[in-house]
Simulated scan of single mutants.
Amino acid sequence: MRFSVLASGSSGNAIYVENEEHSFLVDAGLSGRKMEELFASVDRSMKNLSGILVTHEHSDHIKGLGILARKYKVPIYANAKTWMAMEHLVGNIPLEQRFHFDMESVKTFGSLDIQSFAVSHDAADPMFYVFHENGRKLVLITDTGYVSDRMKGYIKGADSFVFESNHDVGMLQMGRYPWSVKRRILSDVGHVSNEDAAVAMSEVVEEKPTRIYLSHLSKDNNMKDLARMSVTQTLESCGIVTGEYLNLFDTDANKATELVTV
């Protein structure tokens, strides 16, 4: 199983996951043209996709979904409430390309099991995914105001995580956003901060080689170096030293990460 974080941030999100038989895109939050450029940068084509998995209906996750669905005739998977919420946002998608992926269920594609789980975000029915193959586990978890014990049960012990580290609380509080937006981001249905993400990481990481990709960083309220430093320091305060069995990696809003094996 291999994956690349094609893009991650407030302006658009997309993650590519493949094994020897199947390939999936999780979210398509950038323009169709930009999505094609990102695929080309990791030497892949959307012509070969087995499906697109949707997490929720916010524009930074579905901006390019409709045009890509129609151009490449690819199956689209989302839960019922998300389908209803994004109906007017993605345009016409033929019925034969529409598939339901229920909350907290598993779909199997050959040797690849994909498990959905609920997160806490201000969308219709937001959910993210865990990919399992041959004892290896890849977790995708962003767009959540907090990480509950139930979520931790789904994601614990992964070999690789794409984990939200959205904002620095001080930068957000002192920044230019109106208070209503700040309150939304800081709420239980907003986004997790660097420190809160790290505390959650400390409770789900096991003592084995593990990669964590810090993702969905706010353009205005975070920086890569700050996120990495804050997460590192918080993990150390929880007794986990990065660079031993756990390694942190950056993601980018416009550039794909290297395609790596889980």
Rank of each mutant, 00 (worst) to 15 (best):
F3A: 02
S4F: 06
I15M: 11
E18Q: 00
E18L: 01
E21A: 06
E21N: 13
E21T: 07
L25H: 12
G29I: 03
K34D: 11
E36P: 02
E37V: 06
F39M: 02
F39V: 01
S41L: 11
V42Y: 11
V42S: 08
D43N: 13
R44A: 10
R44Q: 15
R44L: 08
M46P: 06
K47S: 15
K47R: 14
N48A: 15
S50E: 13
G51Q: 12
G51I: 10
I52L: 00
H61G: 02
G64D: 08
L65V: 09
L65W: 07
K73S: 02
P75H: 03
P75Y: 09
Y77D: 04
N79F: 04
A80G: 04
A80Q: 05
K81Q: 12
T82I: 08
M84Q: 13
A85G: 13
M86S: 03
M86L: 10
V90L: 14
V90E: 14
G91A: 08
G91T: 12
I93T: 10
Q97Y: 03
F101V: 04
E104M: 10
V106F: 15
T108K: 15
F109P: 09
F109N: 09
D113S: 15
D113R: 15
I114K: 05
S116M: 09
F117Q: 11
D122G: 01
A124S: 01
V130A: 10
H132R: 10
N134E: 13
R136Y: 10
R136C: 03
K137W: 12
L140H: 00
D143I: 04
D149Y: 13
R150N: 15
M151K: 07
G157I: 04
F163V: 03
N166L: 05
V169S: 05
V169F: 01
Q173W: 02
P178K: 07
W179E: 08
W179V: 07
S180E: 09
S187M: 04
D188K: 11
D188C: 04
G190W: 13
S193G: 07
S193R: 04
A197H: 00
A198S: 01
V199Y: 03
V205E: 10
Y213W: 09
L214F: 10
L214K: 04
M229L: 12
S230P: 05
T234Y: 06
E236V: 10
E236M: 14
G239A: 14
T242V: 05
G243C: 08
E244V: 07
N247G: 02
N254T: 06
N254Q: 03
K255C: 03
